[in-house]
């Protein structure tokens, strides 16, 4: 087997025992209805549960949740900066 960097390697070096062949992976990718550009990222997820792997992207609900979390984080950071500045100012002016 030839690795991507051109060097030679035994199959056992490249993959753990029991890993499906390239053909099996390709069939998994085809079964998932993926485009060729998606194949590189398909990997093991495509082998076990191809459709789920494709659906593991970010949903609008996740984006809304993260936006809320980010807003909370930023508010906390701003409060921490204000508190630190206040303490440092009082300490320095005393």
């Amino acid at each position: 087997m030839t690795t991507r960097d051109g060097g030679g390697a035994e199959p056992s070096d490249a993959f753990p025992t029991g890993t499906p062949s390239t053909g099996q992976l390709a069939r998994g990718v085809r079964a998932a209805g993926m485009q060729p550009a998606d194949r590189a990222d398909a990997g093991a997820g495509a082998r076990r549960a191809p459709r789920r792997a494709r659906a593991r992207g970010v949903r609008p609900r996740d984006i809304a949740r993260v936006t809320l979390v980010i807003a909370c984080f930023m508010l906390l950071i701003l409060l921490a900066v204000f508190l630190l500045a206040f303490i440092a100012y009082l300490f320095a002016s005393s």
């Binding site: 593991r56 970010v58 996740d62 993260v66 979390v69």
Partner: peptide, 22 residues
Amino acid sequence: SLLELTGTFSFALYFYMARKGP
């Protein structure tokens, strides 16, 4: 100030948070 702070952290990290958690 809040909006400036959101712009200064990584947008890629926001996406990563959506996948992996806060």
